[in-house]
C-alpha cells in the first residue's frame, strides 16, 4: 500500500517535471536571459522566486534550467543504454577477441573515477552540449554493458533458451522472443537508476563550471551562479538543487518499484 502511494506520487512528480521542462518557453513569464528586475530582487510581485544577481527572473531561469538538465540527462542515458546494450549483445554473439577487447575496455572504464575522467576529457575537448552528452554516455554505458553482457553472452544460460537451441531456432527468435522479454524489466530499472545518476552527474559538472556555459544555465549551473546569494540569507540557490533532488527521488522510486515488482514471481 505504502509502496503504491510512493510509486503514484513518483509518477505524478516525474510527469509534472517533464511537462514543465518541455513547456518551459511557454510557461516562463520572461525570457530567461533578460535582466528585468533589480539585482537580487526579493520574491514577490517581481517574480515568484525573485531575481538573481543580474536581475534575471529566477522562475524563468529554473524552468529553462530544468529543460537543459532533462534534455542532457535523457539524451545521455538513452545513448549510454544503446551503446552498452548493443556492445554487450555484439560481444556475446561475436565472442573471441572482440569480446575480450570490449570487456577489458569496460573494465578499465569502470575502474576510473568518472568525474575525474569527465573533467580531463572536457578540459581537452572543450565544453559543448554534444561533448557533454557523448562523454556522459560513454562513461555510463559501462553499467548497461555489465547488466546485459552475462545474459546476452551465454545464450544457453537458461534452460528454456537451451530448449530453443535444441529445437534449432534462429538467432532472432532466441534474442527477441526468449531472451529480450526477460531482460526488459531489469533494463528499465537500470535506465531509471541511470537517469538519476546522470542528473546528479551533469549537475555536478555544471556546478563545477564545466557544464552548460553562461549565459545559459542548467539546474547545477544555477546553483553555482546564485551561491553567493546564500550567504546573504537567500534560499534561491536551493530551489534548482531541490528540483534535481525531486527528479532523482521520483525516478529512483519508480526504478525501485520496477525491481521489486518484477523480481517476485507469484507462485500458486
Amino acid at each position: 500500500m505504502l509502496s503504491r502511494i510512493a510509486v503514484i506520487g513518483s509518477l505524478c512528480l516525474l510527469s509534472a517535471m517533464v511537462l514543465a521542462a518541455l513547456l518551459a518557453p511557454v510557461l516562463a513569464p520572461v525570457p530567461p536571459n533578460e535582466m528585468v528586475y533589480p539585482a537580487y530582487a526579493a520574491p514577490g510581485p517581481g517574480g515568484v522566486l525573485g531575481a538573481d544577481g543580474l536581475g534575471r527572473d529566477m522562475l524563468s531561469r529554473v524552468l529553462h534550467g530544468m529543460r537543459y538538465t532533462l534534455i542532457i540527462t535523457f539524451a545521455a542515458t538513452t545513448l549510454a543504454g544503446a551503446i552498452g546494450v548493443s556492445l554487450a549483445i555484439a560481444s556475446g554473439l561475436l565472442k573471441g577477441w572482440f569480446d575480450i577487447l570490449v570487456g577489458r575496455a569496460f573494465d578499465i572504464l569502470m575502474s576510473i573515477p568518472h568525474i575525474i575522467l569527465a573533467l580531463i576529457v572536457l578540459a581537452i575537448l572543450g565544453v559543448s552540449m554534444t561533448t557533454l552528452v557523448f562523454t556522459m554516455a560513454v562513461l555510463q554505458s559501462s553499467t548497461y554493458y555489465r547488466v546485459t553482457r552475462p545474459i546476452a553472452g551465454d545464450l544457453s544460460a537458461m534452460d528454456y533458451v537451451e530448449v530453443a537451441r535444441l529445437r534449432g531456432e534462429r538467432l532472432g527468435w532466441n534474442l527477441f522472443r526468449e531472451i529480450f522479454p526477460n531482460m526488459v524489466p531489469s533494463l528499465l530499472a537500470q535506465y531509471g537508476l541511470g537517469l538519476s545518476s546522470a542528473t546528479l552527474f551533469i549537475s555536478s559538472l555544471s556546478f563545477l563550471g564545466i557544464g552548460i556555459q553562461p549565459p545559459a544555465a542548467d539546474l547545477g549551473g544555477l546553483v553555482r551562479e546564485n551561491a553567493l546569494a546564500l550567504s546573504a540569507g537567500r534560499f534561491t540557490p536551493l530551489v534548482p538543487a531541490a528540483c534535481i533532488a525531486l527528479f532523482c527521488l521520483s525516478v529512483n522510486g519508480i526504478a525501485d518499484w520496477l525491481v521489486s515488482h518484477f523480481s517476485e514471481r507469484p507462485e500458486s
Binding site: 546528479l200 555536478s204 556546478f207 546564500l230 534535481i244 533532488a245 529512483n252
Partner: peptide, 23 residues
Amino acid sequence: SALFLSMPSFMIGYVLIYVFAVE
C-alpha cells in the same frame, strides 16, 4: 538514507551552510 542518495552533494553542502553558517 535514500533521501540523501537523491540529493546532489553540493545541495547537501549548501543546506548545511544555510542552516549552520547563515542562520
